[in-house]
């Protein structure tokens, strides 16, 4: 984790300005930090420790306790595959296998091109439309292995287009 480039710490200055003195704000600060960088860089956490006076051990302890936080960068598209009961009963395992088959990644991994990350998450609360996954805030429901693959392919195509026009 020491190999990463130094982070632009000015990105989290506003967050720290508003929260540094507010007790109990660590999770909120980390959420905002992750929103800024896509993950929690170690140097950013050290900076948070310095600004808030919270021991680094406490910060990393919180960051590793909650499933939402990541200590490594994620892909452009974060696939959150629901692991709820209804999704399980309706075959989320097959969806997981299909995603792995399509992208060659498993839970917690990112494709080498940095496009997709797969994360198994607790229930997304769309049980009646299970199995579901959420990608960058959009929920895809009543998935089949085929449908899941199609979603991924269209996102990859969309990204390629966007890349070309940009």
């Amino acid at each position: 984790m020491s190999k990463q480039k130094p982070s632009d710490l000015s990105l989290i200055e506003p967050v720290l300005d508003s929260y540094a003195e507010v007790p109990g704000s660590l999770i909120a600060i980390l959420q905002e930090t992750q929103a800024a960088y896509g993950y929690l860089p170690m140097d950013a956490m050290e900076y948070i420790a310095k600004r808030t006076g919270t021991p680094i051990a406490t910060i990393v302890g919180v960051a590793t306790f909650y499933a939402q936080f990541r200590l490594e960068p994620v892909g452009k598209y974060l696939i959150m595959l629901c692991q709820g009961t209804a999704c399980h009963v309706n075959g989320s395992e097959l969806i997981s296998a299909a995603i792995s088959d399509e992208l060659g990644i498993h839970d917690g991994e990112t494709t080498p091109d940095g496009l997709f990350s797969l994360e198994h998450v607790a229930c997304l609360g769309c049980c009646s439309l299970s199995p579901v996954m959420m990608i960058n805030g959009t929920t895809y429901s009543s998935l089949t292995p085929d449908k899941a693959k199609k979603v991924l392919r269209s996102l990859a195509a969309e990204s390629a287009e966007g890349g070309a026009s940009a």
Binding site: Q83, G84, T85, A86, C87, H88, A122, C123, G125, C126, C127
Partner: peptide
């Protein structure tokens, strides 16, 4: 927090 998988009435 509605953590129980299979419950979504709170949402």
């Amino acid at each position: 927090d509605e953590g129980d998988p299979g419950a979504f009435m709170d949402r």
